[in-house]
Design a protein around this nucleic acid. Structure first.
Lengths: 146, 146
DNA sequence: TACTATATAGTAATCATTCTTATTTGTCAA
DNA sequence: TTGACAAATAAGAATGATTACTATATAGTA
């Protein structure tokens, strides 16, 4: 059975805090509550603006730290790639990416199967697709060894 | 027939410069030459360090501008996502992304077909896959209208 | 309630990116 | 080949996101 989002969050939040001996503060609860409502992929600044409606004195830093903490705890995640330096892609041929989450290296690979998969109707409704890529995240062989 | 990479670049570079009335400078040629050799997905700083071996007086700014220019011209591209503010993902269920290249909005969608596609052998050799996501880039319906 | 480790606010530092300006340099036409 | 000029460059400053620091406040617990 799939839990409701609000249950997911509240449950995960208290569970993870307990597990890691973290305090449940009004700031953390407020950030948690906003994430629960979020239907988008907010930046730290966006979350800060929303939370401030409830807790006008909260600092940006606290929101930011809390978001990173929640990411560590697995309550939320980071959208792949964002928040790092620009990276340039000299390979213009259609290909896909394996990204190492440890060393941040990106490996290219080609796959006819991936190239051929159709764009689902739901996605087509969002707009015109220019480019399609499969992004795999994981730990590369080299990082796995160390 | 697939062109050699060096042909791609040199050809594209002169062609695009001519098309757009851009000057062929030693700096641009040097950046172009480095990209031609690159087998990775370098940051601007990495390209700068490499180019400086040939042109010790080149400024970081010039390398940076040149990379962005080449991206505009379609000689290279940007790896999707990198170089922007962190974005947090409150949706933990397996899903995929449609990203609008204009307004930068990200739309989630679910797809059993996408979930089920196997990881190709080549990619498995790179390391252990933790997460798999299809990233579609395009122009969303709202941006298309304006 | 009092204690203590943890968390917070406020601010400063860092890093990537972008902008500004004075100078230099390709390109093209004479 | 030379001169004119638009375009490009170097150097450094400005901006914006992120991270670090520190004194104060607070949640959790005995």
């Amino acid at each position: 059975m799939r839990l409701e989002k609000s249950q997911d969050f509240t449950q995960l939040f208290s569970q993870k805090c307990a597990e890691h001996g973290l305090k449940i503060t009004p700031q953390r609860s407020a950030v948690c509550a906003e994430l629960m409502k979020a239907k988008d992929h907010p930046t730290a600044d966006a979350v800060y603006k929303r939370v401030r409606e409830k807790l006008p004195n909260i600092s940006f830093d606290t929101v930011y730290r809390t978001l990173l903490l929640f990411t560590e705890l697995g309550i939320i995640s980071l959208v792949e790639g964002y928040g790092e330096q620009k990276r340039f892609e000299p390979n213009l041929h259609q290909h896909h990416h394996f990204r190492c989450v440890k060393c941040r290296k990106i490996f290219d690979f080609e796959s006819d199967t991936y190239d051929q998969i159709a764009v689902p109707k739901e996605a087509r409704n969002y707009g015109t697709v220019i480019h399609k890529r499969v992004v795999l995240e994981g730990v590369c062989a080299r990082c796995r060894r160390t």
